[in-house]
């Protein structure tokens, strides 16, 4: 999905002459086509993410739609205050692209495990957090962001994700994409864990509904009310710490709807994610997901 996103950006940059791509000295063999076609709208900022993010704000102030690109924690947590104060407070037209969400760089160690980013970024006003599940969602998000004015974050996995949707999807902030209708349990996922969730549900032969949430933002409350009425149990799944992530966002929304009297009762919410721990040993993404418990195993046993 990384290549799909960058290639989409490259195509879009032909028609949108305000797109500017910066990287933090990463993106070898991925960013070259953009750099070659649009040298005046490309900059390798060096391994200096604070300055990269600040420069992005400077460029955005002069009319560019700036995308910064690096691995996981580097264009995000490393320069969190630049994101909060320079990008978000000024509502600057800056998009942050992180490749390697979750354990995509599993064997590279904790430095490269991107497992707290959603919680941190979604708490900042004006920031739109996005996490595609497959290349179709990645392309749809790229298209959305070229005309979205203001800050956004794109949490990409890496490579090799299967196509799940049949084509591009209508991504909107807070909108759930229906992957399949079902009954009893609704599984809500964000990012690349969707594929694993579907496989596990299929193997277990459950008739569960599945939704993907590529743009975390204020949820569409009508949809959430409808889910709460139709399902007794909602499962959330993310490759991210449980504290403050996607599952937390779903819980917050449902709790608010209950407090406002818009739903008569709260469905049971079972959250799947990383239970507040680092994994210091090496492993493939699949292995580390399994060790962290980022799968539906226990949910399937108990439901």
């Amino acid at each position: 999905m990384r290549n799909t996103f960058i290639n989409s950006l490259c195509e879009l940059a032909r028609a949108h002459d305000d797109i500017f791509l910066m990287c933090g000295d990463l993106g070898y063999s991925v960013l070259e086509p953009f750099a070659e076609q649009f040298p005046e709208r490309f900059l390798n900022a060096g391994i200096a993410e604070q300055n990269m993010t600040e420069m992005a704000v400077g460029l955005a102030r002069e009319g560019y739609n700036v995308f910064t690109y690096s691995i996981g924690n580097f264009p995000t947590l490393r320069c969190m205050e630049q994101i909060r104060y320079d990008v978000c407070y000024h509502d600057a037209n800056v998009k942050i692209i992180a490749v390697g969400g979750g354990y995509a760089y599993g064997a590279l160690g904790v430095s490269h495990h991107t497992t707290e980013d959603i919680a941190m970024l979604r708490s900042i006003p004006n920031m739109l957090v996005t996490a595609p599940a497959d290349p179709h969602e990645a392309r749809s998000i790229a298209k959305y962001l070229v005309s979205h004015r203001g800050p956004a974050y794109v949490r990409l996995n890496k490579a090799g994700e299967p196509m799940i949707h049949r084509g591009e999807v209508d991504v909107q902030p807070g909108r759930l994409i229906t992957v399949r209708e079902g009954a009893g349990v609704a599984v809500l996922t964000t990012g690349a864990v969707l594929d694993g969730a579907i496989r596990q549900i299929d193997e277990a032969g459950r008739p569960w509904a599945v939704y993907s949430c590529p743009m975390l933002s204020a949820f569409d409350t009508e949809t959430m009310c409808s889910l709460a009425r139709r399902f007794d149990c909602i499962v959330t799944m993310e490759e991210h710490q449980l504290a403050g992530g996607f599952g937390s966002a779903v819980l917050e929304c449902l709790s608010d709807l209950r407090a406002q009297g818009r739903i008569a009762s709260m469905p049971i919410v079972r959250r799947v994610g990383i239970p507040n721990k680092f994994i210091g040993y090496a492993g493939t993404q699949e292995y580390l997901r399994m060790k962290a418990g980022v799968d539906l195993g226990r949910i399937l046993e108990n439901a």
Binding site: T53, E54, M55, G58, R61
Partner: peptide
């Protein structure tokens, strides 16, 4: 601000 200034100057 110096980094924002760099981006502005480049633009």
């Amino acid at each position: 601000a110096l980094g924002v200034a760099c981006g502005t100057a480049l633009a």
